[in-house]
Write a protein that binds this DNA or RNA. Structure first.
Lengths: 216, 216
DNA sequence: GGCCGATATGAACGGGCGTTCAGGAGCAAT
DNA sequence: ATTGCTCCTGAACGCCCGTTCATATCGGCC
């Protein structure tokens, strides 16, 4: 096997700040960067620790295992994403259109700005063991349910008219389709890109409102 | 490391047909299944060959390396996907609305029916070496360009009115957003599911037409 | 029957893996 | 000066990896 020395994904270096981070934070940062660039299973404990200027054994003073390290960094971003989405909905008032737009903006903006973190959280989750993966999936379901709830209120109040399957309305499928769209902007959004994060978030919000048949 | 004995993703067994396949096809099938379930880097050559009732050395009578095997199975599905999309557009006549709907349907239907293949093609591409990954990316770009071209003709002919960023129109971003949505249905669509493939494809087509502001 | 090309075997190779652990370094409190 | 604690080192352990290769098997063809 080629063992992948080359990068899967270019990621900007966090500059010279590395030196004064406490070791546990340096490990987290190095792990994030390397997992994003090359993927969890081919990044070795030795790789991560060398990037922090330490040797492999020192990892186990801060984490029980490589698996726990992955869970730690995924869980922290996932929980924060859940919080941001809940907050966006609450702050947006009562109109489901405003709520949906606010959640899309928050979600997409975060996936543009913190694309490394989003990438790792979404792509590497499968390497966690069963107990830890369940923890993350719960949070994902919670976000999906926020979207479903907004859609339901919008349909109920007559401001959304989303496409149906025959005469059935599958809000869960629609929410999944929208979330897939928002999530994977982190796969291709260019940080030095031509389009600003806010503009991208606005575009996605407009598309979402159109897709669910929001009345103007 | 846990080395992941458990499945990342449940996949139906191809039944008793395995026995009469020629060896190279049996290897391809076993590799597809295992890569989908557990991910390329943790599936060993020994795993794949044991699933075919052979030993590890026999792989190299059919493929030059594990990497070539991955490229072989990804490329075959990717090329076919490209062909299906092109064909769908051509068969749909001149109306960009019919063309877009046809491409969505073809794309989503394929990603529901052949979800294992789609999953591997989309998720494991990053493990290929640089030369082989370029080959696949070209095909993906070609599909994206099909979508961009349809959008362009639709806007040009006044039947699409997609959201803009300020006054700018970013058809590439819109095409990417739509493709992300269609692609990742393969991550959660349940084959024994409540919704048939055709219905799901129809739902996605409706959402796409709404999202680009198609006139009725 | 004898030969050949295609294909399978399974030991071997060189290397890397996650994790453990005995020992050492630095430092604050005694 | 001594103790005790935290943190780090780097060798060691047991295991598995992709790949190679000498050897064996087998079906078809002269």
């Amino acid at each position: 096997m080629s063992k992948r020395k080359s990068a899967r994904l270019a990621v900007a270096v966090p500059a010279a700040e590395r030196e004064q981070l406490p070791p546990i934070e340096a490990i987290r940062a190095a792990a994030f960067k390397q997992f994003a660039e090359r993927g969890y299973p081919v990044v070795t404990v030795r790789d991560i620790m060398k990037a922090c200027g330490l040797t492999q054994g020192a990892l186990y003073n801060h984490f029980k295992s490589k698996d726990e390290l992955l869970h730690d960094i995924i869980a922290s971003t996932q929980i924060e994403l859940e919080r941001v989405c809940q907050q966006a909905m609450v702050d947006a008032g009562d109109d489901p259109r405003a709520q949906l737009a606010a959640v899309v903006r928050a979600y997409v903006m975060r996936h543009c700005r913190l694309r490394i973190e989003a990438l790792v959280a979404n792509r590497e989750i499968g390497w966690l063991d069963a107990a830890r993966v369940a923890d993350i999936r719960r949070s994902r379901r919670a976000i999906r349910d926020v979207v479903v709830a907004i859609l339901f209120r919008g349909v109920d109040g007559g401001v959304f008219d989303p496409p149906r399957i025959g005469d059935r309305l599958d809000l869960k499928a629609i929410a999944m389709a929208l979330l897939d769209q928002w999530t994977h902007v982190s796969m291709w959004y260019g940080p030095a890109g031509e389009v600003a994060e806010e503009e991208m978030a606005g575009l996605y919000a407009d598309m979402a409102l159109l897709a669910v048949g929001a009345r103007p």
